[in-house]
Protein backbone atom coordinates (compact mmCIF):
# COMPACT_ATOMS: atom_id res chain seq x y z
CA UNK A 1 0.00 0.00 0.00
CA UNK A 2 1.24 3.42 0.80
CA UNK A 3 2.37 6.16 -1.45
CA UNK A 4 2.84 4.29 -4.70
CA UNK A 5 -0.67 2.95 -4.68
CA UNK A 6 -2.38 6.31 -4.19
CA UNK A 7 -0.31 7.91 -6.92
CA UNK A 8 -1.16 5.10 -9.30
CA UNK A 9 -4.82 5.41 -8.50
CA UNK A 10 -4.89 9.12 -9.24
CA UNK A 11 -3.26 8.39 -12.58
CA UNK A 12 -6.12 6.05 -13.49
CA UNK A 13 -8.58 8.63 -12.34
CA UNK A 14 -6.85 11.37 -14.23
CA UNK A 15 -6.74 9.35 -17.42
CA UNK A 16 -10.44 8.71 -17.12
CA UNK A 17 -11.07 12.42 -17.33
CA UNK A 18 -8.31 13.01 -19.85
CA UNK A 19 -8.14 16.49 -21.39
CA UNK A 20 -10.26 16.18 -24.48
CA UNK A 21 -7.74 18.20 -26.48
CA UNK A 22 -5.53 15.12 -26.40
CA UNK A 23 -8.31 13.20 -28.14
CA UNK A 24 -8.63 16.04 -30.66
CA UNK A 25 -4.93 15.81 -31.46
CA UNK A 26 -5.19 12.07 -32.03
CA UNK A 27 -8.19 12.44 -34.32
CA UNK A 28 -6.51 15.23 -36.24
CA UNK A 29 -3.41 13.10 -36.69
CA UNK A 30 -5.45 10.04 -37.63
CA UNK A 31 -6.95 12.05 -40.49
CA UNK A 32 -3.90 14.00 -41.60
CA UNK A 33 -1.10 11.43 -41.46
CA UNK A 34 -2.67 8.97 -43.92
CA UNK A 35 -3.44 11.92 -46.19
CA UNK A 36 0.14 13.17 -46.12
CA UNK A 37 1.61 9.75 -46.76
CA UNK A 38 -0.98 9.10 -49.41
CA UNK A 39 -1.92 5.85 -47.71
CA UNK A 40 -4.82 4.06 -49.33
CA UNK A 41 -7.14 1.34 -48.19
CA UNK A 42 -8.29 -1.13 -50.79
CA UNK A 43 -11.84 -2.32 -50.37
CA UNK A 44 -13.06 -5.58 -51.86
CA UNK A 45 -15.91 -4.77 -54.20
CA UNK A 46 -19.29 -5.95 -52.90
CA UNK A 47 -22.10 -7.06 -55.26
CA UNK A 48 -24.15 -3.85 -54.95
CA UNK A 49 -21.17 -1.91 -56.31
CA UNK A 50 -19.92 -4.56 -58.74
CA UNK A 51 -23.26 -4.80 -60.58
CA UNK A 52 -23.20 -1.04 -61.00
CA UNK A 53 -19.69 -1.24 -62.43
CA UNK A 54 -20.59 -4.13 -64.71
CA UNK A 55 -23.62 -2.28 -66.06
CA UNK A 56 -21.49 0.61 -67.27
CA UNK A 57 -18.83 -1.83 -68.44
CA UNK A 58 -21.45 -3.60 -70.55
CA UNK A 59 -22.72 -0.47 -72.28
CA UNK A 60 -21.87 -0.42 -75.98
CA UNK A 61 -19.67 2.34 -77.36
CA UNK A 62 -21.55 5.61 -77.77
CA UNK A 63 -24.19 4.84 -75.15
CA UNK A 64 -25.83 7.83 -73.55
CA UNK A 65 -25.28 8.25 -69.82
CA UNK A 66 -26.97 11.02 -67.87
CA UNK A 67 -24.98 12.17 -64.83
CA UNK A 68 -26.92 14.31 -62.38
CA UNK A 69 -24.91 16.32 -59.84
CA UNK A 70 -27.29 16.58 -56.90
CA UNK A 71 -24.91 17.57 -54.09
CA UNK A 72 -23.00 20.52 -52.72
CA UNK A 73 -19.59 21.47 -51.30
CA UNK A 74 -20.31 20.14 -47.78
CA UNK A 75 -20.81 16.57 -48.99
CA UNK A 76 -18.31 16.79 -51.85
CA UNK A 77 -15.50 15.06 -49.89
CA UNK A 78 -17.60 11.88 -49.86
CA UNK A 79 -19.29 12.13 -53.25
CA UNK A 80 -16.59 13.54 -55.54
CA UNK A 81 -14.43 10.37 -55.56
CA UNK A 82 -17.41 8.40 -56.92
CA UNK A 83 -18.03 11.01 -59.59
CA UNK A 84 -14.41 10.93 -60.68
CA UNK A 85 -14.33 7.15 -60.87
CA UNK A 86 -17.54 6.87 -62.87
CA UNK A 87 -16.58 9.67 -65.24
CA UNK A 88 -13.26 7.90 -65.89
CA UNK A 89 -14.99 4.62 -66.59
CA UNK A 90 -17.52 6.22 -68.92
CA UNK A 91 -14.70 7.91 -70.80
CA UNK A 92 -12.91 4.58 -71.20
CA UNK A 93 -16.10 2.97 -72.45
CA UNK A 94 -16.50 5.88 -74.89
CA UNK A 95 -19.96 6.64 -73.53
CA UNK A 96 -21.52 10.00 -74.20
CA UNK A 97 -21.88 11.88 -70.93
CA UNK A 98 -24.71 14.31 -70.30
CA UNK A 99 -24.11 16.26 -67.11
CA UNK A 100 -26.82 18.19 -65.32
CA UNK A 101 -27.72 19.25 -61.77
CA UNK A 102 -30.86 19.27 -59.68
CA UNK A 103 -29.00 21.25 -57.02
CA UNK A 104 -27.79 24.79 -57.68
CA UNK A 105 -24.57 23.91 -55.85
CA UNK A 106 -23.99 20.99 -58.20
CA UNK A 107 -23.33 23.33 -61.11
CA UNK A 108 -19.89 24.44 -59.86
CA UNK A 109 -18.94 20.84 -59.12
CA UNK A 110 -19.81 19.75 -62.67
CA UNK A 111 -17.39 22.34 -64.04
CA UNK A 112 -14.75 21.23 -61.56
CA UNK A 113 -15.10 17.59 -62.59
CA UNK A 114 -14.67 18.51 -66.25
CA UNK A 115 -11.63 20.68 -65.55
CA UNK A 116 -9.90 18.32 -63.11
CA UNK A 117 -10.66 14.88 -64.54
CA UNK A 118 -12.05 14.88 -68.04
CA UNK A 119 -9.89 17.52 -69.73
CA UNK A 120 -6.45 16.52 -68.37
CA UNK A 121 -6.94 12.75 -68.46
CA UNK A 122 -8.97 12.40 -71.64
CA UNK A 123 -7.83 15.17 -73.98
CA UNK A 124 -9.49 13.45 -76.95
CA UNK A 125 -12.91 13.81 -75.40
CA UNK A 126 -14.68 16.65 -77.20
CA UNK A 127 -17.32 18.93 -75.79
CA UNK A 128 -20.54 18.64 -77.74
CA UNK A 129 -19.86 15.25 -79.25
CA UNK A 130 -18.65 13.21 -76.28
CA UNK A 131 -19.82 15.16 -73.27
CA UNK A 132 -22.01 18.13 -72.47
CA UNK A 133 -22.66 20.23 -69.38
CA UNK A 134 -26.32 21.14 -69.26
CA UNK A 135 -26.12 22.95 -65.93
CA UNK A 136 -28.63 23.46 -63.17
CA UNK A 137 -32.36 23.88 -63.63
CA UNK A 138 -34.93 24.69 -60.97
CA UNK A 139 -37.88 22.43 -60.32
CA UNK A 140 -36.52 19.54 -58.24
CA UNK A 141 -38.61 16.41 -58.86
CA UNK A 142 -40.89 18.48 -61.09
CA UNK A 143 -37.92 18.93 -63.41
CA UNK A 144 -37.47 15.15 -63.63
CA UNK A 145 -41.13 14.71 -64.50
CA UNK A 146 -40.85 17.15 -67.37
CA UNK A 147 -37.58 15.66 -68.61
CA UNK A 148 -39.22 12.25 -68.79
CA UNK A 149 -41.63 13.63 -71.36
CA UNK A 150 -39.77 16.43 -73.08
CA UNK A 151 -36.06 16.93 -72.41
CA UNK A 152 -35.51 20.05 -74.44
CA UNK A 153 -38.42 21.86 -72.87
CA UNK A 154 -36.25 22.39 -69.79
CA UNK A 155 -32.85 22.21 -71.42
CA UNK A 156 -33.10 24.40 -74.48
CA UNK A 157 -29.58 25.68 -73.90
CA UNK A 158 -26.52 24.18 -72.21
CA UNK A 159 -24.74 25.64 -69.17
CA UNK A 160 -22.89 28.22 -71.25
CA UNK A 161 -26.03 29.33 -73.09
CA UNK A 162 -25.47 27.51 -76.39
CA UNK A 163 -28.62 26.34 -78.18
CA UNK A 164 -28.74 22.56 -77.72
CA UNK A 165 -30.06 22.05 -81.25
CA UNK A 166 -26.66 23.14 -82.51
CA UNK A 167 -24.90 20.53 -80.35
CA UNK A 168 -24.44 17.20 -82.20
CA UNK A 169 -24.89 14.85 -79.26
CA UNK A 170 -28.25 16.44 -78.35
CA UNK A 171 -29.74 15.69 -81.75
CA UNK A 172 -31.64 12.53 -80.92
CA UNK A 173 -32.50 13.35 -77.34
CA UNK A 174 -36.24 13.76 -76.91
CA UNK A 175 -36.87 12.56 -73.41
CA UNK A 176 -35.21 10.61 -70.60
CA UNK A 177 -36.06 7.33 -72.31
CA UNK A 178 -33.37 8.09 -74.86
CA UNK A 179 -30.73 7.52 -72.20
CA UNK A 180 -29.21 4.13 -71.53
CA UNK A 181 -28.42 4.90 -67.91
CA UNK A 182 -29.09 7.62 -65.36
CA UNK A 183 -26.61 8.14 -62.53
CA UNK A 184 -27.49 10.49 -59.70
CA UNK A 185 -24.88 11.70 -57.23
CA UNK A 186 -26.44 13.06 -54.08
CA UNK A 187 -27.53 12.42 -50.57
CA UNK A 188 -30.37 14.81 -49.95
CA UNK A 189 -33.64 15.63 -51.55
CA UNK A 190 -34.06 15.84 -54.49
CA UNK A 191 -31.62 13.11 -55.34
CA UNK A 192 -31.40 9.40 -56.05
CA UNK A 193 -34.81 8.64 -54.57
CA UNK A 194 -36.50 11.20 -56.81
CA UNK A 195 -34.72 9.88 -59.89
CA UNK A 196 -35.96 6.38 -59.06
CA UNK A 197 -39.53 7.44 -58.33
CA UNK A 198 -40.04 9.94 -61.14
CA UNK A 199 -37.76 8.65 -63.92
CA UNK A 200 -36.50 5.12 -63.34
CA UNK A 201 -39.79 3.50 -62.30
CA UNK A 202 -42.24 5.20 -64.70
CA UNK A 203 -39.85 5.29 -67.66
CA UNK A 204 -38.22 1.89 -67.03
CA UNK A 205 -34.77 3.48 -67.32
CA UNK A 206 -31.86 1.98 -65.37
CA UNK A 207 -30.83 4.24 -62.49
CA UNK A 208 -27.67 4.02 -60.40
CA UNK A 209 -26.63 6.23 -57.52
CA UNK A 210 -23.83 7.47 -55.34
CA UNK A 211 -24.72 8.94 -51.95
CA UNK A 212 -23.34 9.86 -48.53
CA UNK A 213 -22.89 7.21 -45.88
CA UNK A 214 -25.67 8.75 -43.81
CA UNK A 215 -28.33 8.47 -46.48
CA UNK A 216 -27.30 5.05 -47.80
CA UNK A 217 -29.52 2.99 -45.43
CA UNK A 218 -32.58 4.87 -46.69
CA UNK A 219 -31.76 3.91 -50.28
CA UNK A 220 -30.71 0.26 -49.88
CA UNK A 221 -34.34 -0.92 -50.12
CA UNK A 222 -34.43 0.19 -53.77
CA UNK A 223 -31.66 -2.24 -54.75
CA UNK A 224 -31.77 -4.37 -56.90
CA UNK A 225 -35.24 -3.81 -58.34
CA UNK A 226 -35.21 -0.06 -58.77
CA UNK A 227 -31.51 0.74 -58.54
CA UNK A 228 -28.89 -1.10 -60.59
CA UNK A 229 -26.38 -0.35 -57.83
CA UNK A 230 -25.57 2.03 -55.03
CA UNK A 231 -22.32 3.55 -53.79
CA UNK A 232 -22.60 4.53 -50.13
CA UNK A 233 -20.07 6.98 -48.73
CA UNK A 234 -16.32 6.60 -48.89
CA UNK A 235 -16.60 2.81 -48.69
CA UNK A 236 -18.72 2.68 -51.82
CA UNK A 237 -16.31 4.98 -53.63
CA UNK A 238 -13.30 2.90 -52.63
CA UNK A 239 -15.01 -0.31 -53.74
CA UNK A 240 -15.79 1.23 -57.10
CA UNK A 241 -12.20 2.39 -57.52
CA UNK A 242 -11.07 -1.14 -56.74
CA UNK A 243 -13.32 -2.46 -59.51
CA UNK A 244 -11.91 0.17 -61.85
CA UNK A 245 -8.33 -0.81 -61.04
CA UNK A 246 -9.10 -4.48 -61.63
CA UNK A 247 -10.59 -3.72 -65.03
CA UNK A 248 -8.13 -1.07 -66.21
CA UNK A 249 -4.54 -1.94 -65.30
CA UNK A 250 -3.32 1.58 -66.09
CA UNK A 251 -4.81 2.67 -62.75
CA UNK A 252 -2.82 0.07 -60.85
CA UNK A 253 -0.75 1.69 -58.14
CA UNK A 254 -2.61 4.96 -58.44
CA UNK A 255 -3.83 6.48 -55.18
CA UNK A 256 -7.46 7.26 -55.73
CA UNK A 257 -9.49 9.72 -53.68
CA UNK A 258 -12.01 7.28 -52.26
CA UNK A 259 -9.31 4.91 -51.07
CA UNK A 260 -7.46 7.76 -49.38
CA UNK A 261 -10.66 8.91 -47.71
CA UNK A 262 -11.30 5.35 -46.61
CA UNK A 263 -7.85 5.10 -45.05
CA UNK A 264 -8.31 8.31 -43.06
CA UNK A 265 -11.74 7.14 -41.95
CA UNK A 266 -10.57 3.69 -40.97
CA UNK A 267 -7.67 5.05 -38.93
CA UNK A 268 -9.95 7.56 -37.18
CA UNK A 269 -12.45 4.82 -36.44
CA UNK A 270 -9.71 2.73 -34.91
CA UNK A 271 -8.54 5.70 -32.84
CA UNK A 272 -12.07 6.34 -31.57
CA UNK A 273 -12.58 2.65 -30.81
CA UNK A 274 -9.26 2.60 -29.00
CA UNK A 275 -10.34 5.50 -26.82
CA UNK A 276 -13.65 3.82 -26.05
CA UNK A 277 -11.87 0.63 -25.00
CA UNK A 278 -9.22 2.52 -23.08
CA UNK A 279 -11.83 4.51 -21.17
CA UNK A 280 -13.75 1.38 -20.24
CA UNK A 281 -10.67 -0.52 -19.11
CA UNK A 282 -9.70 2.38 -16.84
CA UNK A 283 -13.26 2.50 -15.56
CA UNK A 284 -13.21 -1.20 -14.67
CA UNK A 285 -9.79 -0.97 -13.03
CA UNK A 286 -10.98 1.86 -10.87
CA UNK A 287 -14.25 0.19 -10.03
CA UNK A 288 -12.60 -3.03 -8.91
CA UNK A 289 -10.19 -0.99 -6.76
CA UNK A 290 -13.03 0.98 -5.23
CA UNK A 291 -14.79 -2.27 -4.45
CA UNK A 292 -11.77 -3.86 -2.76
CA UNK A 293 -11.14 -0.68 -0.80
CA UNK A 294 -14.71 -0.47 0.48
CA UNK A 295 -14.50 -4.14 1.48
CA UNK A 296 -11.32 -3.43 3.42
CA UNK A 297 -12.97 -0.46 5.07
CA UNK A 298 -15.93 -2.64 5.97
CA UNK A 299 -13.69 -5.07 7.86
Amino acid sequence: MGNGHTEHKTLVERLQFIDRRIIFVFIGLAVVIPLLFGAVLKEETTPIVQTFFDTIEGLPEGSRVLLSFDYGPTTAPEIQPMVDAIVRQCAHRKSKMYMMALWATGDNLTGETIEKVLKPEFPDYKYGTDYINLGYQTGNQGLIRVLLVDFKMMYAVDASGTDVDSIPMMKNIRNLKNFDLIVSFGGGSPGIKEWVLYAGDPGKIPVGGGCTAVSAPLLYPYYPNQLIGLLGGAKGAAEYENALINAYPEYKGRKMAGMKLMMSQAVSHVVIMFFILFGNILYFIQRSRDKSRSMEAGR
Binding site: R20, I23, I27, Q265, I272
Partner: peptide, 30 residues
Protein backbone atom coordinates in the same frame (compact mmCIF):
# COMPACT_ATOMS: atom_id res chain seq x y z
CA UNK B 1 -14.39 11.50 -30.73
CA UNK B 2 -14.48 13.24 -27.36
CA UNK B 3 -18.16 12.41 -26.86
CA UNK B 4 -17.59 8.71 -27.54
CA UNK B 5 -14.71 8.59 -25.08
CA UNK B 6 -16.80 10.17 -22.36
CA UNK B 7 -20.26 8.76 -22.97
CA UNK B 8 -19.55 5.16 -23.91
CA UNK B 9 -18.78 3.77 -20.46
CA UNK B 10 -20.31 0.53 -19.27
CA UNK B 11 -21.65 2.19 -16.12
CA UNK B 12 -25.24 0.91 -16.29
CA UNK B 13 -27.08 -1.70 -18.29
CA UNK B 14 -28.45 0.95 -20.63
CA UNK B 15 -25.06 2.58 -21.13
CA UNK B 16 -23.53 -0.81 -21.86
CA UNK B 17 -26.11 -1.52 -24.53
CA UNK B 18 -25.48 1.89 -26.08
CA UNK B 19 -21.76 1.17 -26.03
CA UNK B 20 -22.01 -2.31 -27.54
CA UNK B 21 -24.35 -1.21 -30.35
CA UNK B 22 -22.11 1.72 -31.25
CA UNK B 23 -18.98 -0.42 -31.07
CA UNK B 24 -20.33 -3.13 -33.36
CA UNK B 25 -21.35 -0.51 -35.92
CA UNK B 26 -17.96 1.21 -35.73
CA UNK B 27 -16.15 -2.10 -36.05
CA UNK B 28 -18.32 -3.05 -39.00
CA UNK B 29 -17.14 0.02 -40.86
CA UNK B 30 -13.44 -0.81 -40.66
Amino acid sequence: GSASYRAFRAKTVEATILLVAAFVILLGRT
